[in-house]
Every structure is written in structure tokens, then in C-alpha cells.
């Protein structure tokens, strides 16, 4: 049972890291507990902490807690974990195989950084057009998006506080947009900034927060909502600072 608990914790932790909703993780742990033959499974999970108890036939109980940090969004990982869980529940996989699969999933496959850079550019360029910008604005937004990907990477590497990182990214992106305006490339910064802001808006956070709240995980939902609001304020703050600086310079 101890080994099973270890496996369950590993899977749960990886699910949290890849950005699953709380209800999904708790449900998966219930299924896994049943599959491993526990008489009773108790799971309590909030955004950064998980705690699971298993009871076996002899009424002995095993408990583990884990602190979960570095939560991101990695759908590929989530998909593979989901597949693994389905296999375990169907009981056609050995314990060694499960462990090997978990290790494999932990390493994961991600897109190369050049693809990520391109995605950043694509998103900001596309949304500059989407919200009514012109072609030149879209191109500016595309380039700033690519620069922004480097800045985001740098803030991640420096392991800056997440809220300050958002503030800084927003500040840098708006500053670059105002530079385009001062250089006379565009006549208004609005659509460039909107394109870049779409990159920073915590859309996933909001969606997951809502889903958590209405799946009955009030605490996690509330925590995530607070994070979303703080991020939004940080983004606005970054904009205010650079607009204040650039608005004050007359060229």
C-alpha cells in the first residue's frame, strides 16, 4: 500500500504541475485508490498542497502530504497522465511499468523555444488585427511579441515573483509599443498593446478558477481568483508606469 501511495502522490503532483483542475485531481486519486485496492481513499487538495490517505483491509492507514510548486500549463503532460490513469484503472499495467511511465512523463516533451517565440509573435500579431488594428500595427505587435517571449523567459529564469514578473512584462511591452509611436511607425499604440496584453492576461487562470469554484472547490477557486485579480492589477500597473514615463516625454 505504501508503494501505491507513492505512485498516487507522484501522479497527483504531476497533474497539479501540468495545471489540472482540483476536482479532476481529486477524482483521479479516488479512482487510483480503488484500482490499487484501498478500502477507503481520502484526498484533500488545494492549489499548492495535496494530502492523501489510504486505508487498507487491515484498517492500517497511510498518509502523505506534498507541497506543490511551479504550477504551469502543460496539456500534453496532462493528456499522458490521463492515459496512464485510465490504464491503471483498467488494471493492465505492471507496477514497474507504471513507474517507468511516470518518469518518462516527468521529463516530458515540450516545443522548442523557437516555436514558442513564434507562437508569442503569432498571438500578438493576430490579436492586433482581431481587435481592429492595421497591418503595420500587427507587424509591430508581432515583433514586440517575440521580444516579450525573451523577457518572459528571462523573468522565469531569474525566478522573479510571479506578480512582479507580470508587472515587468507589461511595462516592457507597453514601453516598446510607445517607442514605435515615438519613432513615427504607427499613429496609435492601442492595437499593438492589446495584442501584447492578450499574451499576459491570465486567461487559463480565470477559466480554471471558475471551473474550480463551480465544481465545489471553493477554496482553490478563491485562491486562483485572487491570483487572477492580482495579475490583472500588475498588468495595469505596468501599463500605467510606461504610459506615465512616455507621456511625459515630448519628442
Amino acid at each position: 500500500m505504501k508503494k501505491s501511495l507513492e505512485i498516487i502522490m507522484d501522479i497527483g503532483e504531476q497533474m497539479m504541475i501540468s495545471g489540472a483542475e482540483i476536482s479532476r485531481v481529486e477524482e483521479s486519486i479516488q479512482h487510483l485508490g480503488r484500482a490499487f485496492g484501498a478500502k477507503r481513499t481520502d484526498a484533500f487538495i488545494i492549489t499548492s498542497n495535496m494530502e492523501v490517505s489510504l486505508h487498507d483491509e487491515n484498517d492500517a492507514s497511510y498518509t502523505q502530504t506534498r507541497r506543490v510548486l511551479n504550477i504551469g500549463t502543460d496539456i500534453e503532460k496532462l493528456h499522458r497522465l490521463n492515459d496512464l490513469i485510465r490504464k491503471i484503472c483498467a488494471k493492465n499495467i505492471s507496477e514497474e511499468e507504471i513507474k517507468a511511465r511516470i518518469e518518462e512523463i516527468k521529463c516530458g516533451t515540450v516545443y522548442s523555444f523557437s516555436v514558442i517565440m513564434l507562437a508569442y509573435g503569432l498571438i500578438s500579431g493576430a490579436f492586433a488585427l482581431f481587435f481592429g488594428g492595421g497591418v503595420i500595427e500587427s507587424v509591430c505587435s508581432f515583433i514586440i511579441g517575440i521580444i516579450l517571449s525573451l523577457i518572459v523567459k528571462a523573468t522565469e529564469r531569474a525566478s522573479l515573483n510571479k506578480i512582479f514578473a507580470k508587472f515587468f512584462c507589461s511595462f516592457a511591452a507597453t514601453l516598446l509599443a510607445f517607442f514605435c509611436l515615438k519613432l513615427g511607425i504607427v499613429s496609435s499604440v492601442d492595437h499593438i498593446i492589446i495584442g501584447n496584453i492578450m499574451l499576459l492576461i491570465p486567461g487559463v487562470g480565470l477559466t480554471v478558477a471558475i471551473r474550480d469554484l463551480f465544481a465545489g472547490d471553493n477554496l482553490s477557486g478563491a485562491l486562483r481568483s485572487i491570483e487572477v485579480v492580482l495579475f490583472a492589477i500588475a498588468i495595469a500597473g505596468g501599463y500605467f508606469l510606461s504610459a506615465g514615463i512616455m507621456g511625459g516625454i515630448a519628442i
Binding site: 500549463t73 502543460d74 496539456i75 503532460k77 516533451t109 507562437a119 503569432l122 493576430a126 482581431f130
Partner: peptide, 17 residues
């Protein structure tokens, strides 16, 4: 077109394959 491209871009960021 741009809405679809935007969604595609985010799908890449979230590591959807």
C-alpha cells in the same frame, strides 16, 4: 482568421500536440 491563429498560438504555448 486571426481569432483562429490566436487560438493556435496559445495551443502551442500550452504544449498541445
Amino acid at each position: 482568421i486571426t481569432g483562429t491563429l490566436g487560438a493556435l498560438g496559445f495551443a502551442l504555448l500550452y504544449n498541445i500536440r
